[in-house]
Design a protein around this nucleic acid. Structure first.
Length: 789
DNA sequence: GTAGGGTTAG
């Protein structure tokens, strides 16, 4: 039976076990261990529970406690340890070691460490190496949780280490990794240098430590020294070294290591093949060689979960989402990481609905979402600009105890910003206990998207002051923000520092934003000059930026050139036609507009009702780029005709004038209040740039008219309204073009079945449940007080 | 029949 358990053939062993009339405690313990090892704690506990109390012994308790610890259920490990004592068992070395390993998973405060430290001392196991090692682990892991005095905890671990009677290899590695994980590589190195005989494990710990802290050079230097000292690499060394190469994108070096492994390692073990091949997949992916990565994956005789997750992440990373989806479906097993990668993969590729669907599917599969999966779902809400759902997820995030998660908080910043509630983004940002570059990037982008260019630049400067190193995304964001704020010189200066100070080579996207910046300011000569000097053949982002700029300033000649280039690159892209016709519309050249629309019809390009839009003082000029007889336009007219008298009746104060210019160059003026559901509907039908819709949506929401805000959003549902990142609108003020809102805040949900979203009923339900719970709690409280008195 | 560390995936 034991043999079958060890060869992982538990099912067969269980058949034998079930034939024993009265299995003894030894047989039961074998199963507890086997089930725990296979991750099936429920079955393990079942066997444990059916062991009569009088036959239980320390070993069976210890096996069960270890099972919990191995399966990351620290609290149950501690509970069982306490139960054991309650029933009169005397915990031994094994019990303490296992319980402490469980404790290290959940220890969050200094008191947790101290309490159990006292208990160890009282029990007399304080001199046992394995117990002290586990206790050190508790201190070390606790030191990396927030709101603790990490230095004191590490010092306590060090004291334990210094005073140990008998150190083994684990003691050394525990303290070294303790320092590594708490960013004290100096102390880690000191302890390492003090080792007489340096174990491979210790080398590995330090190499991976250097890699994680971005010190790839030091990591590779260590591996070079290992080779000089003729210390044999094991699979952990290889994976760490390959990880270092992947982090620094050192393809050549990585390939050398790959070749060396092929030449020198004969008869590799199963584990060796798993971990080294997985690291190789990651290496080739990170170095941009997806095909090589795929080859390694395909050639693996056996794959584990990490292999699948790595190849999945690689395909998601390069945006090949459909292939990623087929990997996801094909995978023999999944963990929380698998789900999270796929959810955020959908979200990052604009497939918000798919992301949310998968998040719900994850929960219905009994897979507990982790903070990363929450982050993916929250970003999905950002893509859909679905504020209600986003808020619900925020509440659930807090409930699940992930409030302090970095990735989830970063997602919240983006979500609130894209849903038009900048204040909430800010309150998340300013209450976070630690920030990384993604947090800064998200907050800067949030400000920029809301048109607050100058504050975005200020925040960027603050980021630099706090020694956070900006990355490519930071520069994309700050260039857009400068563009919004008309800060041309600042933008150019930041662009130049990119390579000079931070060694980041600007990509086509960066050049695109720079050209956008120049064109918005009307500096076409500089822009065209830059395009000619580009270090690569200009592609879509460059020409789109140029055409966008020409549209604002009515620079027809240049605009046509840009459009021709775009037609060469993407022949039937509706966006180009629409930008082009909007350019003519803004200048009132209606014959050209209809020429373009005809071209679209002849060439079979899908025609969206379109319009161009500028705001001058309190006047919104809307240029309809459609035939007046177009049914969509007719609907708009009808709505507006009905709207004005109705609104007056309802007492709405007009605050904005809308001037509709149509193709026959007729102008119609409507004095309207933006606080109107009907107007919102009209906008929805018009497919107005969503900046205008954001305005209406925000007004409704600010006035507390959430119902209508929601209704407005659901009215928009079912129509192809694409909310594009970076689609900006312009404000004409004091003779200069300035910033305006970005196109966030429009819901595009349930497009398939065209039903209103279920978000509102859910929020109402939550609200009612909240009130009922509060009411019940209150009554209970009163009853208790009455009983007491 | 029971224990403690190092790797690769976001």
């Amino acid at each position: 039976m034991d043999l079958y358990c060890k060869s992982s053939n538990i099912l067969y062993a269980r058949q034998l076990f079930d034939k024993i009339p009265k299995p003894d405690v030894v047989a039961r313990t074998t199963f507890i261990t086997a089930y725990s090892a296979s991750g099936d704690l429920k079955l393990a506990r079942e066997i444990f529970n059916t062991t009569p109390l009088r036959t239980r012994d320390n070993v069976s308790y210890n096996a069960m406690i270890t099972g919990y610890a191995h399966n990351k259920d620290g609290y149950s490990a501690i509970d069982l340890f306490c139960e054991m004592k309650r029933y009169g068992f005397r915990p031994d070395n094994f019990s303490y070691t296992s319980m402490l390993s469980g404790l290290s998973l959940v220890a969050e405060y200094e008191s947790h460490c101290q309490q159990f430290h006292c208990e160890v001392l009282k029990s007399g196991t304080g001199f046992v190496t394995s117990v002290v090692n586990a206790l050190m682990s508790v201190y070390v892991k606790c030191a990396s949780s927030p709101f603790v005095k990490a230095d004191l905890l590490l010092a306590a671990a060090r004291k334990l280490f210094d005073e140990m009677m008998l150190r083994d290899e684990l003691s050394w590695t525990t303290i070294i990794t303790g320092y590594v994980r708490n960013d004290d590589l100096c102390s880690a190195r000191q302890v390492f240098d003090g080792m007489d005989e340096k174990l491979v494990v210790a080398w590995n710990a330090l190499i991976s430590g250097y890699t994680h802290k971005g010190r790839v050079k030091d990591a590779l230097e260590m591996s070079r020294r290992m080779r000089l000292l003729e210390i044999g690499f094991d699979e952990f060394t290889y994976t760490s070294v390959l990880g270092a190469c992947a982090a620094a994108k050192l393809l050549l070096h990585g390939k050398q290591v790959h070749g060396y492994i092929i030449r020198t390692v004969k008869n590799p073990s199963r584990d060796f093949l798993f971990s080294v091949n997985n690291a190789l997949i990651a290496l080739y992916w990170r170095c941009g060689k997806l095909d090589e990565a795929r080859k390694i994956f395909d050639r693996m005789p056996m794959r584990d979960l990490v292999s699948w997750n790595t190849i999945l992440s690689a395909y998601v990373d390069v945006g090949r989402i459909e292939e990623a989806r087929s990997f996801f479906i094909e995978m023999p097993e999944k963990n929380e990481l698998t789900w999270s990668v796929m959810i955020s993969g959908f979200a990052q590729n604009g497939l918000g609905e798919e992301g949310l669907k998968l998040f719900n599917q994850m929960r219905s599969c009994n897979c507990q979402p982790c903070d990363y999966s929450f982050a993916g779902a929250i970003i999905s809400c950002a893509v859909l600009a679905s504020l209600d759902h986003g808020r619900q997820l925020h509440a659930q995030l807090i409930q699940s105890g992930f409030e302090s998660s970095l990735s989830a908080s970063n997602a919240l910043i983006t979500m609130y910003a894209r849903c038009g509630v900048l204040q909430d983004s800010q309150s998340v940002f300013y209450t976070m206990s630690s920030l990384d570059s993604v947090s800064w990037n998200s907050m800067i982008a949030a400000l920029g998207q809301h048109g607050h260019g100058a504050p975005a630049v200020d925040l960027f400067e603050q980021m630099l002051k706090e020694d956070i190193v900006p990355d490519r995304i930071t520069f994309l964001t700050i260039l857009s923000s400068c563009s919004h704020a008309g800060l041309v010189d600042e933008g150019q200066r930041y662009f130049n520092t990119m390579y000079e100070l931070y060694n980041i080579t600007p990509g086509e996207d960066h050049y695109g934003r720079l050209i956008d910046l120049l064109c918005r300011a009307g500096r076409f000569a500089e822009a065209t000059d830059l395009i000619q000097k580009l270090p690569f053949t200009p592609g879509i982002p460059v020409w789109e930026a140029l055409l966008g700029g020409c549209r604002i300033h009515g620079n027809i000649d240049l605009g046509i050139k840009a459009a021709e280039k775009l037609f060469e690159l993407i022949p039937h892209h509706d966006g180009t036609y629409i930008l082009l016709s909007n350019m003519y519309a803004t200048l009132g050249k209606w014959t050209d507009v209809s020429r373009i629309r005809n071209m679209m019809r002849v060439r079979g390009v899908k025609k969206e009702p379109a319009c161009s839009w500028i705001e001058v003082d309190n006047m919104v000029h809307v240029f309809l780029v459609d035939d007046t007889k177009h049914p969509e336009v007719q609907k708009v007219y009808k709505y507006l005709e009905e709207l004005v008298p109705k609104m007056r009746k309802l007492g709405y104060v007009p605050d904005t004038k809308f001037v509709l210019h149509d193709m026959e160059n007729e102008q119609k003026e409507y004095a309207l209040s933006t606080h109107s559901e009907k107007l919102a509907v009209a906008f929805g039908l018009l497919n107005l740039p969503s900046g205008a819709m954001v305005r209406v949506f925000k007004n409704l929401r600010i006035c507390g008219d959430c119902h209508n805000a929601f209704k407005f959003m659901s009215q928009v549902v079912g129509r192809e309204i694409v909310v594009r990142d970076g689609k900006r609108f312009h404000h004409f003020k004091d003779g200069k073009f300035e910033i305006c809102h970005v196109a966030w805040g429009v819901a595009v949900t349930d497009r398939e079945d065209d039903k209103p979203s279920m978000l509102l009923p859910f929020s109402v339900l939550w609200f009612i449940i909240g009130i009922l719970t509060g009411y019940v709690m209150l009554s209970l409280n009163i009853i208790l007080r009455l009983l007491k008195s």
